[in-house]
Amino acid sequence: MTKRPLVLLDVDGVLNPARRHTLRLRRYECVLDGQVYSVLLNARHGAELAALARDTGAELAWATTWEHHANEHIAPRLGLPALPVVAVNGDPGSRAGEHFKTRHVAEYVAGRPFVWFDDSLGAHDWQYLKDHPAVGEFLLVEVDPRTGLTDGHLARARDWLGGAGAPGAGLRPLPP
């Protein structure tokens, strides 16, 4: 049985770029635990991510410090359903220079192939995932937080996932 691949999504820096409002980005105010946050979202991203998942047989999931708040504040504004959540909060720090979310992702994927869109990934994350016994094939897509998710990022993921659903596809982890 083939394991369905995952597409892991960060919010800040990926779906919510760190720049001013543009014609493609709409500003929203979100209240989380009494704190008001302003986010910029591109409504097209929802349809593009849904198409990526549908066309490649992948499952979308949140890998963000927003955790379940992403289903309340981000998903509906992008036209996405509630997604599974990788619990990443509560364990600050690094063991080998990796981002604090990386250990949680390694446990969550449980051998499933995955693509991870994040703006804070690097060589330490790639090495940690490559060496982790619960991690199979993966692709890290580092997103520039100033621009956020682009068509190029989605195309790279689509190309890589093209073989993820087929038995014996021979996917190889690629460094960022």
Rank of each mutant, 00 (worst) to 15 (best):
H69K: 13
G46L: 02
Q127H: 13
T56F: 10
R24V: 10
E67R: 04
E48A: 13
R112G: 03
R24W: 13
E48I: 09
L78H: 08
A106H: 07
V86T: 04
V143Y: 04
L60K: 04
E107M: 11
A96W: 14
G122C: 08
L121N: 05
V39A: 04
A50F: 05
P133S: 14
V88A: 02
N89S: 12
T65N: 06
L83C: 04
G79I: 01
R112T: 04
E107D: 14
V86N: 02
H153R: 03
L52H: 10
P81N: 04
L80G: 01
D118H: 00
G90K: 11
A106W: 06
N42K: 00
A70P: 05
L139G: 00
F100V: 07
R27S: 08
D125V: 09
D118I: 00
A53C: 07
L78R: 07
D131P: 15
H68R: 15
A96P: 11
Q35T: 15
H99I: 05
P133H: 12
G152S: 08
V36Q: 06
H153F: 03
T150V: 02
D125Y: 09
G93N: 01
T102K: 04
L140Q: 07
F100C: 09
H73L: 12
R27A: 08
C30P: 01
D55K: 10
L23H: 12
H124E: 15
E59P: 07
D118A: 01
D151E: 14
G152V: 05
P84C: 04
R112C: 04
L52Y: 11
H153Y: 03
H45G: 06
P76V: 05
H99S: 10
D119V: 00
L49Q: 07
L139Y: 00
A96G: 14
T22R: 03
K101R: 10
W66E: 10
N71L: 03
H124D: 14
F117Y: 07
G79A: 01
L41N: 00
G34H: 12
A61R: 06
W116K: 06
T64I: 02
H21N: 13
L25D: 00
H99R: 08
H99Y: 07
P92S: 09
H124Q: 14
E29H: 13
V85H: 07
L25G: 00
A61Q: 05
Y28N: 07
W116A: 04
V109S: 03
P133K: 13
R112N: 03
G97F: 09
L140K: 07
K130F: 15
G57V: 02
V141F: 05
T147D: 08
D125I: 07
E142A: 14
R77P: 10
R112Y: 03
R95D: 15
H73G: 02
T150Y: 04
R95F: 15
T102V: 06
G111C: 06
H21W: 14
